[in-house]
Design a protein around this nucleic acid. Structure first.
Length: 303
DNA sequence: AAAGTGGTCAACCGCTCAGCT
DNA sequence: AAGCTGAGCGGTTGACCACTT
């Protein structure tokens, strides 16, 4: 369809921002607030593209930005969030106060990837490197319909695929908590090269939740039980429309460091439910109807 | 000391999406 | 319904710097 450029490139500066440009941008936004980036450069007297102004403000000039090195807690949080959300840097950044998507993306590519490799973990799949080959082939199979299978089987396989990978996935991203103890351990296995299933003694996810020895770190993934069956039925009905897959993200949040002296911020529970593959992603309506409770662990949960 | 190499990160590019007309 | 526009996102680039040879 073709689009007009967001600005007249021949009349705009590019490259690094000068101190004067920064000051102009800061002063303008302080006076007029964010928004209307297209008209901002002219109004602020800047020879910059609106997109460039927005990026400079969001990634560098915003007063609430936390500069400096990432803490270990932030590292682990990013890893956990990435395991759930993938390269959705803006979603990850939204969960980490003071950090920008660009900053997290850069940090991921320059530090965390290496860190995970050194732990023997594939940064993309969050699985042990030695099983990456077979894992990828499995994931690829699930992410694309196998035309040799019956349509019903394909849909069910797709829908359950997240459950099939769930046990290993969950174990590596849960806090293991001793009963009646404040001592927690991150990860299901102290040895990342060891098979997490065998080392943890947890063989299926059904054994994970009921015994309460494993509690959710701050993130979990999976369909609410009661909505699972109806989701499958809905999928079957929708199969005539197009290929689709449903992934439900249910996000719980609590403190990752209960023993820390820093104040613990406990936010409202957020349910991130996305129906991937539909034209317009819509929040899971069933979660809105669910009752939220706060457990003794300060966990916000939906039931 | 100079050249080469690799790491870091700010900035840019191309694209998608949602809202408006 | 279709087209246009602004905003935002993720991937990529390139300048800069530190370290090594």
């Amino acid at each position: 369809m073709g689009r007009s450029p967001c600005c007249e490139k021949e009349h705009t500066n590019k490259g690094a921002w000068t101190k004067e440009e920064d000051e102009r941008l800061i002063n303008y936004i302080k006076a007029h607030g964010e928004g209307c980036w297209r008209s901002l450069p002219k109004a602020a007297g800047l020879l910059r593209c609106g997109k460039s102004c927005r990026l400079r403000w969001i990634n560098y000039l915003r007063p609430d930005l936390k500069r400096g090195n990432f803490s270990d807690e932030e590292d682990e949080l990013i890893i956990n969030l990435h395991s759930l959300l993938g390269n959705k840097w803006s979603l990850i950044a939204a969960r980490i106060p003071g950090r920008t998507d660009n900053e997290i993306k850069n940090y991921w590519n320059t530090h965390i990837k290496r860190k995970l490799f050194s732990r023997g973990i594939d940064p993309q799949t969050h699985r042990p490197l030695k099983s990456t080959t077979t894992t990828n082939s499995t994931n690829n199979k699930n992410s694309r319909l196998d035309t040799k299978r019956s349509p019903d089987f394909q849909l069910e396989e797709q829908n359950y695929s997240f459950l099939q990978v769930q046990p290993e996935f969950m174990i590596s991203h849960m806090i293991k908590k001793e009963n009646n103890s404040s001592i927690i351990k991150v990860g299901g296995s102290s040895d990342s090269t060891e098979d997490s299933n065998s080392s943890s003694g947890v063989t299926t996810e059904l054994e994970v939740y009921p015994d309460h020895k494993l509690v959710n770190l701050e993130l979990s993934i999976g369909l609410p039980c009661e909505s699972l069956v109806s989701s499958i039925n809905n999928l079957k009905q929708a199969k005539q429309q197009e290929q689709e897959e449903v992934v439900t993200h249910q996000l719980f949040e609590t403190s990752t460091t209960p023993t820390s002296s820093a104040p613990v911020s406990v936010h409202e529970a957020a349910c991130l439910c996305y129906k991937l593959g539909f034209k317009n992603s819509q929040a899971c309506s069933s979660c809105n109807a669910m009752e939220k409770t706060v457990t003794s662990d300060n966990l916000h949960r939906f039931y």
